[in-house]
Amino acid sequence: MFLHITAVTYLHEYQIDVLFNNGRRGVVDLRCELNGKMFEPLRELPLFAQVAIDPELETVVWPNGADFAPEFLYYLAFRDDPALQEQFQRWGYCAAPVEPRQTERRAPKRQKKPSARRVPVA
């Protein structure tokens, strides 16, 4: 099933409430995503508040032509959901889990000095 947006509501500042075609609803904060020529104009809240759904693209759009992929909005809305981490990795929105690196420094092992052989006393 392809992911689509079925409803969007402007909340406040740079947050929108989004309903996906799989029935999940989430709040997406786009404050940190408004970079680049197409998205910087959306920093003006009156323009940002004009968010709508494009019926052909089935995602959120703005009057200046800016839009976001539904998968990206889904990731932003639910990125902390442990059950979705594998899916987000497949989509390329999360780095694969990294094994924890050993951070403590250990002193190099001492080499044993040759010792004289002890002979038991009778």
Rank of each mutant, 00 (worst) to 15 (best):
V8Y: 00
V8H: 02
V8K: 04
Y10Q: 06
E13K: 10
Q15Y: 10
L19W: 07
F20M: 10
N21M: 01
G26C: 04
D29I: 08
E33Q: 15
E33K: 12
G36C: 01
M38C: 08
M38Y: 10
E40Y: 02
E40I: 14
P41D: 05
L42N: 08
L42S: 04
E44A: 09
L45A: 11
F48T: 13
F48R: 12
F48I: 08
A49M: 00
V51H: 00
V51A: 10
E56Q: 13
W62H: 12
W62D: 13
G65H: 11
G65Y: 06
F68M: 12
A69K: 15
A69H: 13
Y75V: 12
L76H: 03
R79N: 14
P82N: 10
A83K: 05
L84I: 11
L84W: 13
Q85T: 14
E86Y: 06
Q87N: 03
Q89V: 14
W91T: 07
W91D: 02
Y93V: 04
Y93E: 06
E99F: 12
P100W: 02
R101V: 15
Q102D: 02
Q102A: 06
E104D: 14
R105A: 05
R105W: 07
A107L: 13
K109N: 03
K113F: 13
R118Y: 09
R118L: 08
V119N: 08
P120Y: 02
A122D: 06
